[in-house]
Design a protein around this nucleic acid. Structure first.
Lengths: 419, 419
DNA sequence: AGCAGTTAGTTTGTACCTCGCACAAACTTA
DNA sequence: TAAGTTTGTGCGAGGTACAAACTAACTGCT
């Protein structure tokens, strides 16, 4: 029997494969799972289960993961010996009888994670324990239009101040940055509001100075990971984090994995179009979501409606004034949340994730803003029977979620948390 | 040491986990990879590599997959004995010297796959070989507003006519259907243009009559799988299939997997909003993409512009007339393709898949339509440095891609392939 | 107090999978 | 004809998960 080298029934103009070399270790696009890798994978998944569910006994973990108890013992024992995990006191089991379970969780004294949050003009650094605790926070400011060397100096100094407070060498450093990030190459592509960062190969720089694994990703993705780790996204397999403020952005958790396009692209929701030939956007196009759902829009409307101090209007203030009886505030809030809802609707129609965690300005509006947005989304979306859409705000300080998320980025790359 | 049952640093209003029970075998959300599953996974991946790359020798497969040659032998040998794969003649190797390679590929005489394409008013059935060949095509029509029993009778009859021509019992039956599909439960939720199908538990019905595994999914997802299998999506890890016609829809191939939301949701792109408070859509909302990029829009515009026979205007006709020098056709084509581009732009901003395969009406417009859409997308998207966006049309008959895709759906569920 | 019943965690042996090594087979080149 | 190269196949080693059987610890009933 003789095969044609390229089967005749394969049509289509595009050359097969070859274009995208993928991030695989080899050039191929299919990778088999090796036996040895299996151990690392399952080790990672057990840790993931602990992240998702908090302290759990071996037996519970076995049930959660659907494997034999002995398997869990084999996985966790070395980790206990390595002092990564600790065994808690026998907890009063909820079931009657039987030997009480010994819950396992991360050792608070295990090495920590370095985290950096880089926003236009400010640097925040901290240490994050595997238990989620945040320590040794440091802050600094930098000149957004200044000198690269000056920035690197400030960054190094701030980070050193934080890292020096660690008892042991951290597992690594995670950086969350505003702007457009190439997470594959570890460089900042562009940050509109901070030109000094343009093209900065930050991962290489930090790796060299601190001799630790360094990862970088963009701000919304860090929020996503933070949500997933200790926020409303905990244990969820599918949800999105949406950031609103001066700009809009998002990130997705899909089928138990952080979605990351080529070079860490994806989630640039601010410039999806919701109004063909609409208002001019900063990006030069028209009708971007950002032109109707970001703070600049809100403030322009506030000015038009003669609000006092329109430049300091926020969702939080609108909610407060509406609660105090201001009809104008209530109406503007309704329009604002409706405009925000459109972006979520388009996301829902596309990916149907069903669960959205809000950050940034609208999160300041708390439950009321979330509920308004939810109502608008429900009205605007084509629902399936029985489908429920959840909109939550992560009320905890922005910085903390993003910093935890930055730390979480390290973990997922360091520990092969997911296949 | 004593752990708090719910760590204090876990905030957020949403109850952790519990809500979504996920499709996992167990209730848990994390599943470890078991030893035995590993075999199945790797077997599937080897087959995947054959799908992606066509006939390959064991040594090539080993290189592609990054594993030892002996491993491939171990995986492949039982499949050859089962007559699923066959060894081809020693091919003239492209390298000099050495033992000539024996390429492996699917046995054309292996059991085939049953495929059904269900569109409003018509049923198409066929057999698909593992090599992609289509045989025993049968067609029938049914009354879209008729009786359920009558439909089932027609369906059974047509499918029987096709399946009876198979030499051996097929591996299973794959159904691609228009409308909203619950692929988890195997039911058709709604098909606007064919009310007779509403709520039909088609998988259960066919499974009972034919005693074969049956899977169902919606039309765009079948197109996606068809593209991936033998079309422009072959070997790609990330791309989208977009269907335009009376309605708009899409499906995504993300990180080497078909994206499928809860119960097979996702990809309902037609009702994403591109024009806030725009024209009224069939769905009752305003400004859906479908109101500006589907055939009804095109025909209304054609009528407004006094085109002859406006109700039979298609993209193909516009391209033809534009090529023949009609300025009016050229302008309408430009507006049409621009409107189509907006949906792709939003997809690109969201997921950044970079590669789009068009089906349906715009595919009829061929390379010219694809190029116009590509130009509009390029203009409307916020590009990253070095990013390239590919827009292709799958010129092959719609039916064939969808039918192959339907067959592919069976494979991915039956053989744990990750098509 | 004692025993049955139940659950947690461990020990031991088994089955399975991939890998590296060695080797035969088959072809090219000089 | 000999050397070199590549393909494909046994075989043992190493690692992983699983099942069965065991010990530990606690509850509840008699």
């Amino acid at each position: 029997m003789k095969f044609e080298s390229q089967p005749s029934y394969s049509l289509g103009q595009r050359s097969p494969a070859s274009r995208e070399v993928a991030a695989g270790e080899n050039g191929g696009n299919v990778t088999l799972v090796s036996q040895s890798a299996l151990g690392a994978i399952n080790r990672g998944r057990v840790l993931q289960a602990l992240y998702d569910n908090g302290p759990k006994s071996r037996a519970d973990l076995a049930r959660l993961a659907g494997v034999n108890r002995t398997t869990i013992t084999g996985i966790v024992q070395p980790m206990i010996e390595d002092q990564l995990l600790v065994e808690g006191d026998a907890s009063p089991s909820d079931v009657k009888g039987g030997k009480p379970a010994r819950p396992l969780y991360f050792n608070p004294d295990a090495p920590m994670l370095g985290a950096v949050l880089l926003l236009p003009g400010t640097i925040q650094t901290c240490l994050v324990a595997l238990t989620g605790e945040i320590k040794a926070v440091a802050k600094a400011e930098f000149d957004t239009h200044g000198d690269t060397e000056a920035f690197i100096a400030v960054m190094t100094e701030t980070l050193t101040a934080t890292l020096s407070q660690a008892q042991q060498a951290p597992f690594g450093i995670g950086v969350a940055s505003a702007g457009m990030i190439d997470s594959d190459n570890g460089t900042i592509l562009t940050v509109n509001l901070a030109p000094v960062l343009t093209g900065l190969p930050l991962v290489a720089i930090l790796q060299e100075r601190f001799s630790l694994p360094v990862v970088i990703d963009h701000h919304p993705r860090a929020l996503l990971v933070g949500d997933r780790w200790f926020g409303p996204g905990r244990g969820q397999q599918n949800f999105a984090a949406v950031y609103t403020g001066e700009v809009l952005g998002g990130a997705f958790f899909i089928d138990g994995k952080v979605y990351r396009g080529l070079a860490g692209s994806g989630g640039e929701l601010g410039h999806s179009v919701v109004q063909i030939d609409g208002a001019l956007c900063n990006c030069g196009k028209h009708g971007c979501w950002e032109t109707v759902a970001a703070l600049p829009w809100l403030r322009k409307q506030a000015a038009r409606l003669s609000f006092p101090h329109p430049k300091s209007v926020t969702c939080a203030r609108l909610v407060k004034e509406a609660d105090e009886g201001s009809k104008a505030a209530e109406e503007l809030l309704d329009r604002y949340t409706r405009n925000v809802a459109f972006g979520i609707v388009n996301l829902q129609q596309t990916l149907s994730l069903n669960s959205y965690v809000l950050h940034g300005d609208v999160a300041g509006g708390g439950l009321k803003a979330a509920e308004l947005i939810r109502q608008h989304v429900e009205q605007l979306v084509v629902k399936r029977p029985g489908q429920e859409i959840s909109i939550t705000v992560n009320g905890i300080g922005e910085g903390h979620t993003a910093l935890r998320g930055a730390a979480g980025l390290v973990l997922s790359s360091h520990l092969k948390l997911v296949i």
